[in-house]
Computed example of a mutant assay.
Amino acid sequence: MLGFPIAMAEQAIGLLGGSFDPAHEGHAHITREALKRFGLDRVWWLVSPGNPLKPDAPAPMADRIARARAVMAHPRVVISDIEARLGTRYTAETLRLLMALYPGVRFVWLMGADNLASFHEWQDWDWIMTNVPIGIFARPGSRLAARGARAAEEYERFRLPAEAAVLLPRCRPPAWCFVNVPMLDHSSSAIRAEGGWRRDLRGGPR
């Protein structure tokens, strides 16, 4: 049983959500960068029951959790199934409950630039932008799409310069920051296409 993560008031905690089907070194890479660039105390991986924007169901939660733990063994990273425990399906729902459960914690939503391009399709995306600081990482092939993203255009004046990224957790939302990092071209869909990742769990991530 994973239980609910522990957090103290005033801690800066990054939230990286997704199906992690499967988790890979690209996820681990942006997590390490997030801890450093945004001055975070912790990062929680929110392994979701499923993505409402994707038609296919992911692999079983237990398999994805095990893979995530193998890929991201870090003392400041928590692998969590809290969305399944809360019964939430959408990011905004999860964030509302986390903010109620952990008053005083400074949550930062983390995502890749590819998600920024389609962020306006998320349920209550405006609420997310105006209630939680957002840290965004460049990913392969996503820089140009992100620059023309609706969310980026509508909230351009609330963008924090990359050189001030460490201030993001203490910014009053709306606040978002786009940072370029050395990119790793890893893809969950490509790993699924190769097949067999669940059979490799005993030997660690491939």
Rank of each mutant, 00 (worst) to 15 (best):
M1C: 03
G3L: 12
I13R: 05
I13W: 05
G14C: 10
S19K: 01
S19P: 00
P22Y: 04
H27A: 01
D41W: 07
R42S: 06
W44S: 04
L46R: 01
G50T: 00
N51F: 04
L53H: 14
P55T: 05
D56H: 14
A57Q: 13
A57Y: 01
P58I: 10
A59F: 06
A59I: 05
P60F: 11
M61H: 05
D63Q: 15
I65F: 13
R69A: 06
A70M: 10
A70F: 00
A70H: 10
M72F: 00
V77E: 06
V78F: 13
S80N: 08
A84D: 12
G87I: 12
Y90D: 01
T91E: 08
A92R: 02
T94W: 03
T94D: 07
L97R: 15
M99D: 04
A100L: 07
Y102S: 02
G104A: 04
V105L: 01
L110N: 08
M111N: 14
A117Q: 14
D124L: 09
D124H: 15
I128L: 15
I128M: 15
M129Q: 06
T130I: 00
N131S: 13
G135P: 03
I136E: 08
R139W: 08
P140I: 12
G148K: 03
R150T: 14
E154D: 04
E156C: 02
R157L: 07
F158N: 09
R159P: 00
L160I: 15
P161Q: 05
A165W: 09
C171T: 01
P174D: 02
C177I: 07
N180H: 13
D185L: 09
S189Q: 14
R192H: 12
A193G: 09
E194Y: 02
E194N: 10
D200S: 14
P205L: 06
P205D: 04
R206K: 14
